[in-house]
């Protein structure tokens, strides 16, 4: 993600420029990653709150719908912002890899941070990674599908860090 430019506007909105094509593609996948949840991913994204079954059942009845609604709202926020992810028109003389730009309003940044975390967790659960796998380079994974998923997890982590650094004074 070398060369990517992040600017914080006076009102707190983030303006991202020179987003590499691979990251733009990954970001565009985010809403679908969060929408098509494998049962293992769903279990992790909506975890148990209580040890006792009766307490847990009550919690799910009372808090579950609100959490599910917030989750869907955040996906829609991300999807809406991604409509503004546009090509910048190529490098000088039209050469070089195409880059993209987009804006993330301040009020949407929680949705993005949470969404990125959710997508990383969903990939981890769906691909049945181990904690040890998280310390590996994607190239070390034997299965191409797992290598891609691990790359996506790492790339989204870098993007999360970029957004978080933007939050600190």
């Amino acid at each position: 993600m070398n060369g990517m430019v992040i600017r914080r506007e006076p009102g707190g909105d983030l303006r991202l420029e020179r987003i590499p094509a691979f990251l733009a593609g990954l970001l565009l996948e985010l809403p679908d990653l969060l929408s098509d949840l494998d049962p293992r991913a769903e279990k992790r994204l909506f975890p148990r709150a209580f040890e006792e079954d009766e307490e847990e059942e009550q919690w799910r009845r009372l808090a579950g719908p609100d959490l599910a609604h917030l989750f869907q709202d955040r996906i829609q926020v991300i999807r809406g912002d991604l409509e503004g992810l546009v090509p910048e028109g190529g490098g000088m003389f039209g050469a070089g890899e195409e880059t993209f730009r987009m804006e993330i309003p301040q009020g949407h940044q929680a949705a993005w941070l949470s969404g990125l975390n959710g997508a990383r967790l969903a990939l981890y659960e769906t691909e049945e990674f181990s904690p040890e796998d998280m310390r590996k380079d994607p190239e070390e994974m034997e299965e191409p599908g797992k290598a891609l998923a691990l790359f996506q997890i790492h790339a989204m982590a870098v993007f999360q860090e970029i957004l978080l650094e933007g939050r600190f004074p």
Partner: peptide
């Protein structure tokens, strides 16, 4: 419970 709900909204593993 309010805090738990907020933690879950950020996908942290939290329990009461």
């Amino acid at each position: 419970e309010v805090y738990l709900s907020k933690l879950h909204a950020y996908h942290l593993l939290a329990t009461l």
